[in-house]
Design a protein around this nucleic acid. Structure first.
Length: 736
RNA sequence: GCCGAAGUGGCGGAAUUGGCAGACGCGGGGGACUCAAAAUCCCCUGCCCGUAAGGGCGUGCGGGUUCGACUCCCGCCUUCGGCACCA
């Protein structure tokens, strides 16, 4: 019997796999293909347990199908552009490229050591010109087809750092880096017209129904947010102005008792000019325009101001007061609403606050107090002239028809989905391949001049976009008139990179086109796509959009990229706050360290512990610890063995996603050293079904390790007996 | 508020189609080996009553369908996740 020496076993077999190129795959028309893909990682530094789980799941499926004779494609790559690399450059002066490539090297070694069955010959790195040139190529195709366009857009802007901030980088209305109050600024940006595809992106979800998780389908549906209704135009009294609104309830048009427009609406200041309300309106609008998006989200109370002006209900001729209200969104519909307090809870709340009449036009099925709340359901119409007695469904149609006949409105479908702003005022991304020329305007870089290479020699000051200050890059020649021109310095959102990488894997070394259609015809669609639920909307929606566009221009022949989607659960780990630990031990932070250590002697050998003559509180202050920190940190400082904490964690701990800030991570490298890759993979696959999350426990991984040892011992014991015994696949099937 | 997912032993979780509930692992108990310990191996381990044979109860709660329900239907409760003034 030999000992289970996982290190030797694993290293020997890894070498063998490497030498024999065992996981290499190529097209073979005679065999059934299966494309299995896991979402590629951002090279953040090291592999974490979430990655290990994601890839272990994909790996086991790939191996199983290969053994069954399928011709599988199982590639891996790097989502290598992005902000962390640039932030590292600003903070510690390391070039983003160096930082990124070093991380890739390290993480690739980790993945190989874990023994995942990838065809590394197909490796993709999105930050190399050989990849991103095709981002630029696709962008040019989109520009040609009118799918890419440039317009002014409102963004979060830090006036100190002179840069655009993502919503996540705005902390309580201030810049995350320099604490300067963030302002809304309008700057020209590049957009992709994903809204052109809203309807088809929604409709084709139907096709994915059986193979995608319900949760993801719903999130996409909500994100696209289709609603069917009508546009209605309300003329403003004594004016040529018209307020256009969108409503899903044209059946309540007779119940409109006021109108409300968003503070950003072009009419908001204009309407009140010359009325007594002028200054009130100015103050109100000013207040809301200077508020950050975040601050505005915090305001819960409905608030508004009367403009002093009236609109005319185009069906009834009634005079309707016009308000400016904080609950009307500028980004949805027309930024103006017809308000029906009797049948909309929000309008009801506002009407009550400002004593606006409430006029019921739908008969509720039961006794109803309209002073108390709105009836939002459908029903039979009342107080609606010729439409009385009709049910909402019919009334919607009839009233919309009347609006169309009179030319004061029409049936409208509205989507929540916005066009995709891909402009980033950042260095570490794909340069947008256009040139600005004083005489020719916006000029696309000709295809044969691609790629527009991201220059290496730039300064990272954290102020503005480093590309803008690189004269060599900016100054160029207009492709049309040959006169001096300036290059676009915006780079692309990194979601562009990941919107088509699964196609590039089919043909990763192609130098003439993004990929050959012949190859994607063989491999696409991806049969099984595995990744985290956090990509439920953006990445998966963008990939679907890109696939549809590329199909339209004849590059691929599938309309959906991913047949089956598996969203794997998270790897959690229980942890105990210092506060909780003290509570369990019945120790107060005013007690001495000695008392704490005394209590802990019941839980194991702590003879090496560091005893200090202070209170727990003082000790914690000295070591910059708070009651909310992980008790693990306190144990480290006191030199108490970690395994003593285990009992507290497993019994009293709170499960949370592994994260550095909570110090509840488990490092895959350490686990490999201690137990080997097979143990980790077995444990992860065994602990829970792939879609549900699970708590990582030390005892669990030890159990998995013992199991492997037992298997090894059993086989090595019987090895002598089975030596020389011949068997065939058929025998094996029979005995099974 | 709306949408989605899930509730099974002391714990993580099995039971893919309505057919032996609790696989496997952790923990616990007992034993073997050992001077002893660790490691390893074997047996037991849902709860209650009973010395035992045996019996009763059990998949969040309350109903229903069925020869048969963790699984299907109706109504509730709880937890977690997503979206959130979308007119």
């Amino acid at each position: 019997m030999t000992e289970y020496n996982f290190r030797q076993i694993e290293e020997t077999i890894l070498k063998k796999w490497e030498q024999t190129d065992i996981f290499k795959s190529c097209e073979d028309k005679k065999r059934d293909k299966f494309y299995i893909l896991e979402m590629f990682p951002y090279p953040s530094g090291r592999i974490h347990m979430g990655h290990v789980r994601n890839y272990a799941i994909g790996d086991v499926v790939n191996r199983y199908l290969r053994m069954k004779g399928k011709n599988t494609l199982h590639p891996m790559g790097w989502d290598a552009f992005g902000m962390p690399a640039e932030n590292a450059a600003i903070k510690s002066g390391i070039h983003p490229a160096k930082w990124t490539y070093e991380n890739i090297d390290y993480m690739k070694k980790q993945l190989k050591r874990l023994g995942f069955s990838y065809d590394w010959d197909r490796e993709i790195t999105t930050c190399i010109p050989e990849y991103y040139r095709w981002n630029q190529w696709i962008f040019l195709k989109m520009l040609e087809k009118g799918i890419a366009y440039r317009k002014s857009a409102v963004v979060n802007w830090c006036p100190h750092d002179m840069t655009v901030l993502a919503n996540e980088q705005v902390i309580e209305g201030r810049c995350w880096r320099c604490d300067t109050p963030v302002v809304q600024k309008e700057i020209p940006s590049w957009f992709l017209r994903i809204t052109d595809y809203a309807e088809i992106l929604l409709d084709d979800l139907e096709e994915l129904k059986d193979n995608w998780p319900e949760a993801v389908l719903t999130m996409q549906k909500n994100w696209i947010g289709k609603s069917v209704g009508a546009t209605v135009r309300f003329p403003v009294e004594n004016s040529t102005a018209v307020i256009e609104v969108f409503t899903t309830r044209p059946d309540t048009l007779y119940g409109v008792t006021f109108m409300a427009i968003a503070p950003e609406h072009s009419l908001s200041l204009e309407l009140s000019k010359g009325t007594e309300q002028e200054t009130d309106v100015e103050d109100f609008v000013q207040k809301y325009l200077t508020m950050s998006t975040r601050e505005r989200n915090i305001v819960e109370e409905k608030e508004g101001v009367f403009t002093g002006r009236y609109a005319i209900n185009p069906l009834t001729g009634e005079r309707i007061p016009i308000y400016i209200a904080n609950y009307v969104l500028w980004g949805y519909g027309t930024g103006a609403i017809m308000a029906v307090p009797a049948h909309d809870e929000r309008d009801h709340e506002f009407a009550k606050k400002y004593s606006i009449p409430i006029k019921p036009v739908i008969q509720p099925p039961e006794e109803w107090d309209f002073g108390e709340k709105a009836y939002e359901g459908e029903g039979v119409l009342i107080n609606s002239d010729g439409f009385d007695g009709l049910h909402s469904a019919q009334a919607k149609e009839k009233i919309t028809q009347l609006l169309e006949e009179k030319g004061i409105g029409e049936k409208t479908v509205n989507f929540r989905l916005r066009d995709w702003n891909i402009s980033r005022q950042r260095y570490w991304g794909t340069p947008i391949p256009v040139v600005y020329c004083d005489s020719c305007g916006i000029v696309p870089v000709p295809e044969e001049q691609l790629p527009v290479i991201l220059p290496e020699n730039v300064q990272f000051t954290g102020m503005g976009n480093p590309l803008e200050k690189n004269e060599e890059f900016v100054k160029t020649e207009c492709p049309k008139c040959r006169r001096e021109a300036r290059r676009e310095t915006d780079t692309m959102d990194t979601f562009v990179d990941s919107s088509w990488y699964f196609l590039r894997y089919c043909d990763p070394k192609n130098e003439k086109e993004p990929f050959s259609t012949e190859k994607t015809d063989y491999w696409m669609p991806v049969d099984l796509y595995i990744g985290g639920i956090e990509h439920a909307v953006l990445h998966l929606l963008y990939s679907r959009f890109f696939t549809k566009f590329l199909k339209e221009i004849g590059l691929v022949n599938v309309k959906e990229p991913f047949v089956k989607l598996l969203t794997q659960g998270m790897v959690l780990k229980k942890w105990v706050k210092i506060e909780k630990l003290l509570e369990i031990l019945h120790v107060s932070s005013d007690d001495s360290i000695e008392t704490l250590i005394g209590k802990l002697t019941f839980y194991g050998d702590i003879t090496d512990a560091k005893v200090e003559n202070t209170t727990i509180k003082e000790f914690m202050e000295k070591n910059h610890l708070t009651l909310n920190d992980n008790a693990k940190l306190l144990f480290d400082k006191l030199n108490i063995p970690q395994n003593i904490l285990r009992e507290f964690e497993e019994k009293y701990g709170k499960s949370d996603k592994m994260s550095k800030s909570k110090h509840n991570t488990v490092d895959p490298d350490e686990m490999i050293k201690k137990y080997g890759a097979d143990t980790i993979r077995l444990y992860i696959l065994f602990a829970a079904p792939p879609h549900s999350s699970f708590d990582w426990t030390d005892s669990g991984i030890e159990g998995a390790h013992r199991f492997l040892k037992r298997v090894w011992n059993f086989v090595s014991e019987k090895l002598e007996e089975i030596k020389g015994v011949e068997y065939s696949r058929e025998d094996f099937k029979k005995s099974a």
